[in-house]
């Protein structure tokens, strides 16, 4: 049964993966980190990514049309994708059976990375993280 570290290591096996983190978006705390981070400081990156995740999670504009009441750990947003000239960031919200505000953050290089694959795998990893 995988724990936080195993799930992050699994994410790091994706092509082009540079760094992976589990972050709490209410506080900006990095609960686990593997690999590199864009500015060399996982904690600072986590706090910045948390701001982005919070904006997406809290604003109705990004929720599905029929709304989202967070029941059963459902999150209004599944994932966020940020791309730039040299890399991708995929932020995947984690559904938990306890009250939480957690997401997985995968940073991958653009030349080797496969965004579609990363997005699917990260969703699977997020599920395994909390369901075993």
């Amino acid at each position: 049964m995988p724990g936080i570290d195993e799930c992050l290591l699994e994410a790091m096996r994706l092509p082009g993966a540079r760094g992976a983190t589990v972050v709490d978006w209410t506080s900006g705390l990095a609960l686990g980190t593997v690999g590199d981070s864009p500015n060399g400081d996982h904690e600072a990156t986590a706090a910045e990514a948390a701001e982005l995740a919070r904006t997406a999670a809290e604003n109705l504009a990004f929720a599905p049309a029929e709304g989202s009441d967070w029941s059963g750990g459902e999150t209004p947003v599944e994932d966020l994708i940020v791309s730039n000239r040299d890399s991708y960031h995929v932020l995947r919200f984690v559904r938990t059976t306890f009250d939480s505000s957690v997401f997985l953050h995968l940073w991958l290089g653009r030349t080797d990375g496969n965004l579609a694959l990363a997005r699917i795998r990260l969703g699977e990893i997020a599920e395994r993280l909390v369901l075993g």
Binding site: M1, I4, V22, L31, T96, T97, S100, V102, G132
Partner: peptide, 21 residues
């Protein structure tokens, strides 16, 4: 809790770390 299958390991780690901090 983990070995008896009551709480998956990742979920327990996340919840406990949250409680710890």
């Amino acid at each position: 809790l983990i070995d008896s299958g009551r709480v998956p390991r990742g979920a327990l780690e996340l919840c406990h770390l949250g409680a710890l901090y």
